[in-house]
Design a protein around this nucleic acid. Structure first.
Length: 617
RNA sequence: UGGGCUAUGGUGUAAUGGUAGCACAAGACAUUUUGGUCGUCUUAGUCCUGGUUCGAACCCGGGUAGCCCAACCA
């Protein structure tokens, strides 16, 4: 009996419609109150954020209601699949924090499926069709017109059986024969118009080698795999709603097969197990939820593959990719992804989600997770004229101010690091303006600001005989290259004099001597239009081009900007790859896996919320 | 007269015949050694139309709009 262990808090939060259904089924004792789900990726590409939603559902519901979720590789098409993807899929699921009961492969069931298919032939449920794919397509009809029967539809079962076995001999050319289910060529549901069960590929499979030359199709595999494994709730996305009646039909045939042949089957075999479970296991039921659509994002594996092949991005884990590995490299935590998925929920409405919601979930998560560091992205030299030359002071910087004790005070133990203060510093170019105006609360002539964890400093508003501010040094082109200020020695951070209220903001800075050059990679959306999938489709139609040529017009040329002039405090040198950071006052950043202590590389995950820039635009 | 599914503030989602709530976004205020975080407030919604009912976002009919289905892909 499955244990229903929902905490009180979770209970208060409403269950989504599938969870409600699961809860009801368990309470009513369906399938002996057993819960089993599966996550069934095809190992032909990398998992993306859309899969993460399915993963969160399949594994999440099992976790929540005391069931088990297996990972099943849906590997029925050896033309597209490869073992290299299996490892990546397993790694990504683990990284998201989920654990499967076991790893299964649809190819493990090829013999069962074959035996079942032979039974179907003998029952008159299936026949071998020898028409070309064009002829079959022509007979299929259209959604508005019924199809017509194949001339091979009524051939004797023995003949079909003989041909079916030939299909697997390697002597039949692909395309010459297929096995079809005999259902209804006039059915308004296209999937019922004698769907294809098996096709000849004459191709080696990466797991079963040369054993099979004919391979089963998805519709003749999925429900049966679920049934053979003992899945109770087979959860998938909305586009499979129309497949459900066929899914149910094949599962029902399989129950009949188990009932017919299971008693004679070898004990311990899957068929024999099905036979012994006939009264306690009714079989899997399929449930569908809406898949994840994100604006300014292209999700389909086919198109993501094109982006990697054409070099638009630097591989599947490029931080601009919506793949799990890409998002990981971008700097999202697993929890940030899961929180986002939790916020958008599961319904049957085809929603287009705003990427801003994902970024908000990311900020919320990283705010409590990221170590604050000082980095200056566009450096401007600042000399503190009255600060002793050669003096180096060690200042204390808090790693994470969100780390609080029970009273809400920031925890300082093991939550600080040292940052060096010197006479010559770098500040951000945009933190100094010669004529910033009254609302500009940062540095400028006659303005006073605080340097984070440092001192209060001020620029004089004295001018020379030409009307130039003495605190500003310019090059011949008039660019500000250096600014001068004086510090208030009593205002050192942590000292009583530091409590003084000032008008200006607090700026981040790094010491010229103690900062390290680093590369900062900033990312924006890959696409300039909200719905790239539709835009590309329409462009393909209107211009007669396909693939990358239809994508180019919608690619954002500024999706990656690299800044090699940035400087970061020494503390950041020690941080391991994928560390979650916040560049104080700028945004969240992540240590790139390619980063070395000789060449530091940081990826921008997402910017901080910035009400100042918005207001000034 | 193909079939299936769907429709709640700008976006996403809750309310399962009985007070339309939440999050994000937007705007305002306050606080601040991050123009961040936290806090307070404001704006804004049941696609249209009939019916059933004491009572409808929810049930029923009719519209309208969107998505999915004609791979030897999954």
């Amino acid at each position: 009996m499955a244990e229903i262990n929902i905490t009180e808090q979770e209970e208060k939060k409403s269950l989504n419609f599938i969870e409600q259904r699961v809860k009801t089924d368990l309470a009513e004792g369906k399938n002996g109150s057993r819960l089993q789900t599966r996550f069934p990726p095809e190992p032909n590409g990398y998992l993306h954020i859309g899969h993460a939603k399915a993963i969160a559902m399949d594994f999440g519901v099992a976790q929540k209601f005391g069931g088990v979720c297996n990972l099943r590789m849906d590997d029925t098409n050896p033309q597209k699949e490869d073992t290299e993807y299996v490892e990546a899929i397993e790694r990504d699921i683990k990284w998201l924090g989920f654990q499967w009961g076991k790893v299964c492969y649809a190819s493990d069931y090829f013999q069962d499926l074959w035996d079942f298919a032979e039974w179907c032939i003998l029952q008159g449920h299936a026949y071998v069709d020898e028409q070309s794919s064009e002829e079959i397509a022509a007979q299929k009809g259209t959604p508005t017109e019924p199809g017509t029967n194949s001339p091979f539809r009524e051939r004797p079962a023995e003949e079909s059986l003989k041909l079916f076995r030939e299909m697997n001999s390697g002597n039949v050319e692909p395309g010459k024969m297929i096995l079809r289910a005999k259902i209804d060529m006039a059915n308004p549901n296209m999937h019922f118009r004698d769907p294809i069960m098996y096709r000849v590929l004459n191709m080696e499979h990466w797991r079963t080698g040369n054993k099979w030359n004919a391979y089963p199709m998805y519709d003749f595999t999925h429900g049966q795999s679920d049934y053979l494994e003992g899945v109770t709730h087979s959860i998938c996305t909305l586009e499979f709603v129309e497949h459900r009646p066929l899914y149910d039909l094949f599962v029902n045939w399989m129950r009949e097969w188990a009932s017919d042949c299971g008693g004679k089957a070898e004990s311990g075999s899957r068929l024999s197990n099905l036979y012994s479970q006939l009264s306690t296991y009714q079989g899997p039921r399929q449930f569908e939820f809406n898949k994840l659509n994100l604006n300014y994002t292209l999700m389909s594996k086919r198109n993501l593959l094109i982006l990697t092949k054409e070099g638009v991005v630097n591989g599947w884990d490029d931080p601009r990719m919506p793949t799990i590995c890409g998002i990981r490299r971008r700097g999202y935590s697993p929890q940030a992804i899961l929180n986002f998925i939790d916020k958008i929920g599961y319904t049957t409405f085809d929603a287009l989600n705003d990427i801003k919601l994902m970024e908000a979930a990311c900020r919320e998560d990283l705010n409590t997770r990221a170590i604050r560091v000082s980095a200056v992205v566009n450096p401007l030299k600042l000399v503190i004229d009255n600060y002793p030359e050669g003096l180096v002071e060690e200042m204390t910087a808090i790693n994470n101010p969100e780390l609080r004790d029970a009273d809400g005070n920031t925890i300082t133990e093991n939550n600080t690091h040292i940052i060096h203060f010197t006479r010559e510093l770098y500040i951000e170019q945009e933190d100094f303006m010669e004529d910033g105006g009254k609302k500009f609360m940062r540095l400028g002539p006659g303005k006073e600001v605080r340097l984070k964890n440092g001192y209060i400093i001020a620029c004089s508003d004295e001018q020379d005989e030409h009307g130039n501010f003495k605190c500003i040094e310019k090059d011949i082109e008039g660019n500000i290259v250096c600014v001068h200020a004086t510090y208030d020695p009593d205002s050192k951070s942590g000292m009583p004099g530091a409590d003084r209220k000032i008008k200006g903001k607090t700026l981040h800075w790094v010491s010229c001597q103690h900062s390290i050059p680093c590369e900062v990679r900033n990312y924006e959306c890959l696409w300039t239009c909200e719905n790239p999938r539709d835009a590309i489709k329409q462009y393909e139609k209107e211009n007669g081009v396909r693939g990358i040529d239809a994508m180019r017009p919608f690619l954002n040329p500024d999706s990656l900007t690299i800044n090699r002039n940035a400087l970061i405090e020494e503390f950041a040198k020690e941080l391991p790859a994928l560390s979650y950071l916040q560049f104080q006052r700028i945004g969240y950043y992540n240590v790139d896996p390619d980063s070395t202590s000789e060449h530091l590389i940081f990826n921008k995950t997402v910017g901080l919320k910035d009400t100042w820039q918005k207001g000034s635009k």
